[in-house]
Nucleic acid binder design. Sequence first.
DNA 1: ATGGTAGGTCTCCTA
Length: 261
Amino acid sequence: MSFTLATWNINSVRLREPIVCKLLQEQGPDVLCLQECKSPVDKIPTEAFADLGYTFIARGQKGYNGVAILSRLPIEDVGDKDFAGLGHARHVAGRLENGVTIHNFYVPAGGDIPDRDKNEKFGQKLDYLTDMRDWFREDKPEKAILVGDLNIAPREDDVWSHKKLLKVVSHTPIEVEHMAETMEAGDWVDVTRADIPEGPLYSWWSYRARDWSTADKGRRLDHVWATSDIAKSGHSSRVLREARGWEKPSDHAPIFATFDL
DNA sequence: ATGGTAGGTCTCCTA
């Protein structure tokens, strides 16, 4: 069995219902994981997605955060976890009939100042990653895929300027360390980078840039990981960069990967 | 060094 999975920080699923449908129609992923739905679950516009053959699993809250998994394959809701006890809707998991578990994450952005003494949100981000690490250590994931907006660009070629971003939240050494520990704890493999080892693969460009594509000051904040037992079945990774230029775009582009299992 | 844009909600918070 082969299935294609996509992950996309949608920055309001209600406002962007048309481009979610466009993605489903034009790209036809079997599973689409969304982050920053910014909607209570009962206000997610699921009817249009259902008409295209997609069921959904979601966790939501008013105004902030929110994650959803749209799927045209049968999928079972296998729960969520409130990492770091923030009380935010940032994680949900589903299981496909082939036994593969899909974790959909929206890791806290962490505010502007990369110092937990001066900025509580940065501490929460680090704590969130530490809690993920401890959970994966305790309960070793198998046959699992982890996707989402992890809000960290770990490698030098994951940002437009490594030097200029070393002290910018998303690319600081302490965040990169925390991410590496989380990966190691779950024996996760970065499928996107296993597939495409070199060069920029940005998935986010600020709304504040005048000409985002020409300036191309992007970061790779969105990730597709798989546990090492199934990571080799992942292939055909890509970023749908054009989606950043669609009508009323999200500031993130979707990432794709296909798994043969 | 600074400010720039976007979304949700209800006046400013978050990204």
